[in-house]
Amino acid sequence: MQWKPIDIEDKESLTHFFASHKILVSDLTFTNLYLWHYARHISWAILNDCLVIKTQYPNENPFIFYPIHKQNDLNCKKQTLLQLQEICKAKGLTFSIHSLSRVDKEELESLLPDTFDFIYREDRSDYIYSTSELIELKGKKYHKKKTHLNRFVERYAFTYEALGSENLNELIATYQSWFGKISDTASDGLRNEYVGIIESLKQFSRLDFKGGILRVEGKIIAFSFGEPLNNDTAVIHIEKADIEYQGAYQAINREFLAHEWSAYPFVNREEDLGIEGLRKAKQSYQPLFLQEKFDAVLKA
Rank of each mutant, 00 (worst) to 15 (best):
G196W: 11
L288K: 09
K11H: 14
G277M: 06
F18P: 05
I238M: 02
G92T: 04
C76F: 06
W44Q: 09
E260S: 14
T80F: 07
Q246A: 15
A162Q: 13
F209Y: 11
R269D: 04
Q2S: 11
Q291T: 00
L108R: 11
I236E: 00
I46T: 08
K138P: 02
I213K: 13
L278R: 04
S200Q: 12
Y249K: 12
P67E: 12
L171H: 05
I220G: 08
L108I: 07
I42D: 01
P58N: 04
Q71S: 08
D272W: 00
E122D: 13
F294G: 03
E136C: 07
D104G: 01
D232M: 02
D188W: 11
Y127D: 00
N167E: 13
W3A: 07
E154V: 03
Y120A: 01
E60T: 15
N230R: 10
L93D: 07
C50P: 08
I53C: 06
K299N: 13
L28T: 03
A186T: 09
K293Y: 05
E9S: 15
S110H: 11
R151P: 09
L168H: 06
S177G: 10
L47H: 09
E86P: 05
E199N: 12
K146W: 05
K77I: 14
R102V: 06
E276M: 00
E276W: 00
I135T: 09
P58C: 04
A296F: 10
R279D: 02
T94M: 06
D208Y: 04
D188H: 11
H69F: 01
L298H: 13
E260W: 06
T115W: 05
C50N: 12
L84W: 10
T233H: 10
Y120W: 02
E217S: 15
N75D: 09
E136H: 08
V103M: 05
Q79K: 08
N61T: 12
W3S: 08
S20A: 14
Y285K: 15
L100S: 09
L207W: 02
S13H: 13
I172C: 13
K70C: 01
K11F: 10
C76M: 09
H41K: 11
V235Y: 02
